[in-house]
Amino acid sequence: MNPENPTCRDIEPDLVAVAAGEAGASAARGVERHVGVCRGCRDELERYRVLEGMVADLRRAPVAGADPTLSRAELESRLADIRSRMISYGIFSSPLGKILIARSELGVSLVRYLESDAAGKSYLARLAGGEVVEDKAAVQATYRELLDYLNARGTRLSWPLDLRWAGSDFQRRVLAATAELPYGAVTSYAGIARRIGAPASVRAVAQALRRNPIPIAIPCHRVIGSSGDLTGYAGSKIGLKERLLSLEGVPVGLRAHRIERGHMYVLFDGYTEYCLPTCGTLSQEPMSQLTLFGSRRHAEAVGLTACSSCRPDLHPLSA
C-alpha cells in the first residue's frame, strides 16, 4: 500500500470489508483488481485478515474483571424491589363512564372514575413510591370482572386488594369493615364507626370512605347517612351511588337521594334472621345497629333466614 497513492487510500475501506467477509460483489472485484497490481495493498489485505483472526479471539477470550455474578445478584434484588412497587394501569370505558384501574402484584390498588384522561395522571401521582406503567393487558381481566359486575352478571368482586396506599391504619380499618358489607345491603356511617370500635368517629369514617382508593370493590356506595340520605359519593357523583345501589336491588328514591327504611328488610346486628321493617321495635332502633337489604334474595344469599315471627317470607315487601 502506498499512502501517497489516492487509489490505495480510497480502496482501504473495501480492503477491510473484504478481510471481514462483508464486501459486496463490486467492492470485492475492485479490491481483487487492485491487489493484483499493488503489492503493498496485497500485504495490507493479508494483515487485515490476520487482524480479523485476532479480533475473533477477543470474542472467546475472557475479559478481565468480567464476572457478572455479583452484579446479576444485585440486579435481581433491585428488580424484585421495583416489581413489588410496580403498578400497571389502564383506562377503560364502562357503563359508569371512563374508569381507571390500577393494580400491583399484590392486588388492585386504585379504581377511579375519570372526567378526563388527564385527571387519571393526578390520581396516579398519589401512588407515591410506586413505579406506575400503563399496561392495559395486565389489568384487562380485572376490567372484565368489573364490567360483568356493572352489567349485573356477577355479585362479587373477589379481587385481592393492595391497600398499601391507604392513608392510615384507621382508614384501612374503615375500608376493611366496608368491604364486609354484602351485595344488596346498606348500613350507615355510624354503623361502620361502631363496627370498627370507634362509635364517636362518624365524621372520620365518612372522610375515610371519601378517599376510598378502590370504590365498587370496597363498596362505600353501601354506606349512607343515618337518616337514609345517600349523602355523597366520589365527590359530586351521587348519581353513580344511586345507580350502583339500584343495580343491587336497593330501592332508591331518585328525586330525594334517599333510602326509606320502611321499604327495606332489616337485619339487627348479631342476628341470623332478617325481618320486616315493622317487626317488634326495629323501627325505633338506631341505623348504626342495622343492615338493610333491598331484597330477600340478597339477604338469603349471605345465609340469613326469614324471621319466624314477622315472616318476611310470607309477607314480602311490595317492590
Binding site: 474483571g65 457478572p68 433491585r78
Partner: peptide, 10 residues
C-alpha cells in the same frame, strides 16, 4: 460495568 449493566436492565 456492574453498575451500568444493572441500570441497563432496570
Amino acid at each position: 460495568a456492574d453498575d451500568l449493566s444493572q441500570e441497563t436492565f432496570v
